[in-house]
């Protein structure tokens, strides 16, 4: 009886958690990508440049410093996959998609602060890992921070 209980706790519970995380994580990711695609289409008229150059012959009407950030975390299933990957090495695809979501979300939030701007120049992206500080196992959480200078040209439509 005792053996059965410990088996339940040690084996069944983690498996249940992994399955639950797989289902909810997949749903959350799918919804997030849908929302990202929708908003990217809406704000697609703002040109992003990571250089400092801008068309100097056009008069600038408004200059605004904009930024956006998001803290995003891996789910239990992704961490499990990554754990397997770390045995054999290679690309951890599940983490790639997570960081892609984070970056695109941060950029969208930045754009959302200046919806009528024409271009954003000197775009910078910062990624920092926020771990809980437990010696070996971090929380698996990253912050993505995007910032740039938004310009609105004089005479361009509102």
């Amino acid at each position: 009886m005792e053996g059965l209980i410990s088996l339940l706790i040690n084996l069944v519970l983690p498996i249940l958690l992994i399955v639950a995380a797989l289902i909810t994580g997949t749903i959350i990711e799918k919804r997030h990508y849908q929302s990202i695609d929708k908003r990217e289409a809406l704000l697609g008229n703002i040109v992003l440049l990571n250089g400092k150059e801008y068309p100097k012959d056009t008069p600038v009407a408004n200059v605004q410093f904009v930024s956006g950030s998001v803290v995003i975390s891996y789910d239990y299933f992704k961490r499990f996959l990554a754990g397997l990957r770390q045995i054999f090495g290679g690309e951890i695809k599940s983490y790639v998609s997570l960081l892609d979501r984070g970056r695109r979300e941060a950029i969208l939030r930045m754009k959302g602060k200046c919806p009528d701007a024409d271009i954003i120049i000197n775009l910078r992206l910062d990624t920092s890992s926020i771990s809980k500080g437990r010696r070996k196992r971090g929380l698996g959480t990253v912050e993505v921070f995007a910032y740039g200078t938004a310009l609105k040209f004089a005479g361009s439509p509102e």
């Binding site: 995380a21 997030h32 998001v70 789910d75």
Partner: peptide
Amino acid sequence: KNIVGGELK
């Protein structure tokens, strides 16, 4: 939130 992943608002 870390179990299911996603944004930590």
